[in-house]
Amino acid sequence: MTTEFWISHVDHETRTDGSKGGIERVCAWKHDVAARKLTDKKSYTRAQVVALLQAIDLGTRARLNVFYTTTLNETTSTWDRGAEVVLTRDGKYITTTPTDTTRDNLDELPKCDC
C-alpha cells in the first residue's frame, strides 16, 4: 500500500548572496485516504523526502510513498491536493510536476511552521 504525504510548507537554503536556494526541508502531513483527512504533520529534510520517494516494494517494484503539494482552500477551509512531487533527473532534489497553475509549486508554498 502506498503512503501519501501532502507538503504544505517549505524551507529553502539561503545562498551566500542572500537569494533563495534549494529546498532544505518540508512540512508534510500523512494523508489518510480512507478517512479523507490529513494527520501526523511532521518536518522532513530534503534527503528524507528523496529516500521516501526512492523506496519501492522489492516484490512488486511498486512505489511505497508518494508526495503531493497541498494548499488551503480558503472558501471551503479544506486542504486541496496539488501537484505531484517527483525527483529531479539526478535523484538528488525534489520538484513538482507541471500543472496548469503555479500556486501549488514547491517554491510557492509558505515557510515551514512545524
Score class of each variant (00 low, 15 high):
11 D>A: 13
37 K>G: 00
34 A>N: 04
97 T>S: 11
99 T>E: 14
112 C>W: 00
71 T>Q: 12
68 Y>A: 03
27 C>D: 15
40 D>H: 11
94 I>A: 09
69 T>G: 10
35 A>D: 07
70 T>D: 00
32 D>T: 01
40 D>F: 02
55 A>I: 05
33 V>I: 14
17 D>Q: 09
102 T>G: 02
14 T>S: 11
23 I>S: 05
54 Q>Y: 03
63 R>H: 13
67 F>I: 09
52 L>G: 04
17 D>R: 09
38 L>H: 09
7 I>S: 02
10 V>Q: 05
18 G>R: 09
43 S>V: 11
81 R>L: 12
73 N>Y: 08
94 I>P: 08
42 K>I: 07
11 D>I: 01
9 H>K: 12
5 F>I: 03
69 T>E: 09
10 V>F: 04
59 G>W: 04
63 R>N: 13
65 N>A: 04
42 K>D: 03
42 K>V: 05
109 L>K: 06
112 C>R: 10
51 A>L: 09
57 D>Y: 07
100 D>K: 09
65 N>Y: 15
73 N>A: 12
52 L>C: 05
113 D>L: 06
5 F>T: 03
16 T>W: 02
85 V>N: 08
16 T>A: 14
17 D>S: 10
101 T>C: 01
2 T>V: 15
77 S>Y: 07
107 D>L: 08
63 R>T: 12
37 K>L: 14
40 D>C: 03
29 W>G: 01
59 G>A: 11
60 T>Y: 05
102 T>W: 02
48 Q>R: 11
12 H>I: 02
55 A>R: 13
83 A>R: 13
3 T>Q: 14
99 T>I: 08
7 I>H: 02
94 I>N: 07
109 L>I: 07
84 E>F: 02
61 R>L: 14
62 A>H: 09
52 L>R: 13
3 T>F: 02
94 I>E: 09
111 K>C: 02
109 L>F: 05
19 S>K: 13
64 L>G: 01
92 K>E: 15
85 V>S: 07
87 L>V: 12
40 D>W: 00
99 T>Q: 13
52 L>K: 15
107 D>P: 00
19 S>G: 06
49 V>P: 06
7 I>L: 06
101 T>G: 00
4 E>M: 08
41 K>P: 14
25 R>A: 11
97 T>A: 11
109 L>Y: 04
19 S>A: 11
62 A>Q: 15
82 G>P: 05
82 G>W: 01
110 P>D: 10
79 W>Q: 12
70 T>L: 10
29 W>T: 01
47 A>M: 06
2 T>Q: 13
112 C>D: 02
83 A>P: 01
93 Y>E: 15
2 T>M: 14
59 G>F: 08
61 R>G: 00
92 K>F: 10
22 G>D: 15
64 L>Q: 14
109 L>M: 09
101 T>L: 00
21 G>P: 11
41 K>A: 08
57 D>P: 06
83 A>M: 04
66 V>I: 14
